[in-house]
Simulated assay, not measured.
Amino acid sequence: MTTLACALLPSFSPQQYLTLARAADDAGLAEIVLWEDCFKESALAAAGAILGRTQRLRVQLGVLPVPLRNVALTAMEIATLEGMFPGRLVPGVGHGVQSWMAQVGAKPASPLTLLREYLTALRALLAGERLTVSGRYVSLDDVALDWPPVTPPPVISAAAGPKTLRLVGELADGVALDGGNGYTRLKAALETVRAAYDDAGRTDAFLTSVTVPTAIGPGAEERVRAWLPTWPLPADEPADYAVWGDTPEQIAEGLRRFAGLGADTLVVQPLDDEPDPERLIRVLGTEVAPLLR
């Protein structure tokens, strides 16, 4: 069964985050997703506040840029939240936007090497292992968590290029694909990830999170067509890149196409000009999600 989630955009204020998260929890939406764009909200800080103010909502971190954080610190933060709110955190990591990483003096010469070392160490630390490693970017000397999770959460990773997609299929517990891909590129990306997963001889669980820009209500199609030029996307096939409609049934029908790619989680991404994100979240939880079950 596909889980329906909604992204809380970093253009929303920290005050809005709590209001929208509580709305999602009240509406029965299973999951929200927190971005971590520079230099806006911290996803982990927001996750802690949201988990503490909601009852059953899961929080996906999509995603933490690994050049910004020592892997031991990330493991400590994830383990702390997992210990307090078991099973309600889905951590995600990724390369980060390289221009932003350069702004803070953290741009790696080899993002792929960093992500490989980071994923390997992070998953091992969360599994309770004691590590001594000396990599190009990750160095740990006899490091283990005092309070590792009883059940380690799945660590998903963002990916776009073919090398990163293959790395994620080989090492991560899942993949997060963003809303700028479009149906055709999403299909190809998932095929690359699955091939790498198979080549690695893996049989463990693997999560697929797919983000779909979505607009609902009067003028939704016009808003989508105005949004498309803000991305380097072909504008002649908007239905390949977004879902829109006047009714929950139309939204559910559009999302089913993307779910058919094999997505475990469909993340609705509000457009930047979404006039009423709280209403959107309530419609998703109370009306659209039941239609997808």
Results as ranks from 00 to 15, higher is better:
residue 4 L to P: 00
residue 11 S to P: 08
residue 11 S to T: 13
residue 15 Q to D: 12
residue 15 Q to A: 15
residue 27 A to E: 05
residue 33 V to C: 10
residue 34 L to Y: 09
residue 37 D to R: 08
residue 40 K to A: 12
residue 41 E to N: 13
residue 42 S to F: 06
residue 52 G to M: 05
residue 52 G to N: 10
residue 53 R to S: 13
residue 54 T to N: 03
residue 58 R to C: 04
residue 59 V to N: 03
residue 59 V to Y: 03
residue 65 P to K: 05
residue 65 P to E: 11
residue 67 P to V: 12
residue 68 L to G: 06
residue 72 A to E: 11
residue 76 M to W: 10
residue 77 E to L: 14
residue 81 L to C: 09
residue 83 G to Y: 10
residue 86 P to W: 13
residue 88 R to Q: 09
residue 93 V to F: 05
residue 98 Q to M: 14
residue 98 Q to H: 12
residue 99 S to F: 13
residue 102 A to Q: 03
residue 111 P to M: 07
residue 112 L to D: 10
residue 112 L to G: 04
residue 113 T to A: 12
residue 116 R to L: 04
residue 124 A to C: 12
residue 129 E to P: 09
residue 146 D to K: 13
residue 147 W to D: 14
residue 158 A to N: 04
residue 159 A to N: 04
residue 160 A to H: 13
residue 161 G to W: 13
residue 161 G to Q: 15
residue 165 L to W: 03
residue 168 V to Y: 03
residue 169 G to S: 08
residue 169 G to I: 05
residue 169 G to L: 05
residue 170 E to V: 04
residue 178 D to E: 12
residue 178 D to Y: 07
residue 179 G to Q: 01
residue 192 T to Y: 04
residue 194 R to S: 08
residue 196 A to W: 01
residue 198 D to E: 12
residue 201 G to Y: 08
residue 201 G to E: 07
residue 201 G to R: 05
residue 203 T to K: 15
residue 205 A to C: 09
residue 206 F to H: 12
residue 224 V to D: 02
residue 226 A to D: 14
residue 227 W to R: 00
residue 229 P to K: 05
residue 242 A to G: 03
residue 243 V to I: 11
residue 249 E to I: 11
residue 255 L to V: 02
residue 258 F to R: 00
residue 259 A to I: 00
residue 261 L to I: 02
residue 267 V to S: 00
residue 270 P to M: 09
residue 271 L to V: 06
residue 273 D to A: 08
residue 276 D to V: 06
residue 277 P to Q: 09
residue 278 E to V: 05
residue 285 G to P: 00
